[in-house]
Every structure is written in C-alpha cells, then in structure tokens.
Design a protein around this nucleic acid. Structure first.
Lengths: 135, 135
DNA sequence: CGAATATTTCGATCATACTAGAAATACCGT
DNA sequence: ACGGTATTTCTAGTATGATCGAAATATTCG
C-alpha cells in the first residue's frame, strides 16, 4: 500500500481541501509560487506584497490562509517576518490528490509520472537525496 | 494567449485555479472521487446525489461547478444524465500544480515521483511525449 | 397527448471570502 | 525611551458560494 505519507504525516481529506482552497486563488497561488522559487531562504512579507503589487494587509490575510493550510511557515528575522514554503507539505497535498483520485486506477498515474520525468531530475531511486542547487 | 488547455496538455493558472477551487469542497471532492472510481462507465446524477446523501439540486450545482472546471463531463443516456470524470484533465491539473511550483526545483519533484512509483508505475517504459523545453 | 421520471434552473437565505483603510503590535537602532 | 519600520489585527463593504424548496425542462412510455 502506498496511501500514506510517512514523512511528517498523513493527509486527510480535510487538510487537502484546506490546502487546495488556499491554492485556488490567484494571489495566494502566486505567493506560494514565489516562495517556492525562493525556497532555501524565504521572503519577508513586505517583499511578497511588493512583488505581487498587493497591499500589505491584504497579503497578510492571504499568507495567513496559506499558513493555516500548512503550505507556508513564518519565522521572525529581526524586524521582518520571513515566510518559507513548506515543500514537504505541498508534496503531501499533490500526492493526496493524485493517489486519492487514482485509487485502483494505475493507468491514471503512469502517464503522470511519465510527464513528470522530463520536468525534474529522473532520480527515482534517490528519493531522499535533495540535489543541492547553487545556494 | 490561450485561456484554455492546449493540446499538449498544459494548463494556465486560471484554469488550474478553477479546478483547484472545484476540488476544494468536500461534496465535490467526494463526487469526483466517486466518478473516478466508476470511470469507465460513469454515473447518473441521481446516483451521485444518492450515494453522497445530498439533495439532487444541490448536487446538480456541484456537478455544474466540476463541469465548468473541466473535471467532469456529462452525456445524456436516455432519461438519465451520466457524468464521467475527465481523468486527462485531472492529470493536467496535478501536473500544473507540481510543475508550476517546482519550477527550477527538481528536488521537489524527485521524491514525489519516488512516492508515486510503488503506487502505480508498473511500466517503467513510459511513452514520452515531445515536451517543450521552455514554457 | 398525458403521466411519470430524471435533472436542472430559479429564488431566497445564510455563511464565508476578498479587499483594503485605519489602528494596533512587535521589533530595531540610537 | 523614542521614532521608524515591518507586519498584523480590526473593521466594514462588497462579492461570491453553499444549501435547498419549488418550479421548470427534458426524456420516455402508454
């Protein structure tokens, strides 16, 4: 069986719905994308709001929603609050979505994996080997 | 610029947001799951409403939302309207989500693929489509 | 046609979401 | 402590979503 995620937890439908709802909004999706792109270091709230041309309080609401969904986390860094994407959590959401809906239907996942291969490093054996980029 | 999904299976943010929003609701997620499970044949609207213990008109709204997101399709079958999950579309959503957020970050996708392998990848020889190098 | 069945559309109600101005909170440097 | 900066919380207005009873539409059958 492979329905469970043994990294930091296992995702229930409710959690997945929360995460999907958090990502189903343009500002939040872009914010998460931005944070994923800046993943090693994160980005302070003001920089996110500035990059997305959104008022800080509005962005603060969106960031709170993403955080409540577990997709991002914040930590204080002197005067700024730096947000980071929780990529493990994101993986869990993606996995839930795929596994949940392809339950008993391997033919759904196979082409998905095939499509994923050219995108990312084809190292399925080294799952726990995060290739360090230039950071 | 295309606001729809092009033939190669790529998706715009707007479409993805629509699909994510459609799935970010318990009744709709369950409905889609149900339809995915019954995929070859589909299921009439009444049966879905009955299976999920939801009034027919309420379910009709949800099905309409899923259909507008492109995740399901309907076809008349005598007196009933049979809904089917559009698994290809679902794949596109999942792919968008993963690729979009792991852009430039292959280390995010690798473990995802690894986790997917035991679930459903009996055929390592996957038909690789001519993926465009850039987006 | 007229009755029966399956599903959708209409209308109304209630709840939640998005947005942003203004005020409040937390931190830093001097 | 004080002023400046970064961010959040408060608040309110508007918009969208969920739910479901009732009516309307579409199809089949007698």
């Amino acid at each position: 069986m492979c329905h469970y995620i043994d990294k930091s937890g296992y995702m229930e439908s409710e959690d997945a719905i929360l995460a999907l709802g958090a990502l189903a909004q343009s500002t939040r999706l872009e914010a998460f994308r931005l944070l994923a792109a800046h993943e090693p270091d994160g980005l302070p709230a003001g920089a996110i709001a500035d990059a997305l041309a959104v008022p800080q309080n509005t962005m603060s609401s969106h960031l709170a929603i993403l955080a409540r969904a577990g997709l991002i986390r914040s930590r204080r860094h002197s005067r700024s609050i730096v947000y980071r994407a929780d990529l493990a959590r994101f993986q869990q959401v993606a996995l839930f979505l795929i596994k949940d809906c392809c339950g008993g239907r391997p033919e759904l996942c196979a082409p998905l994996i095939a499509d994923l291969q050219p995108c990312c490093a084809p190292k399925p054996k080294a799952a726990r080997r995060p290739a360090r980029a230039s950071t």
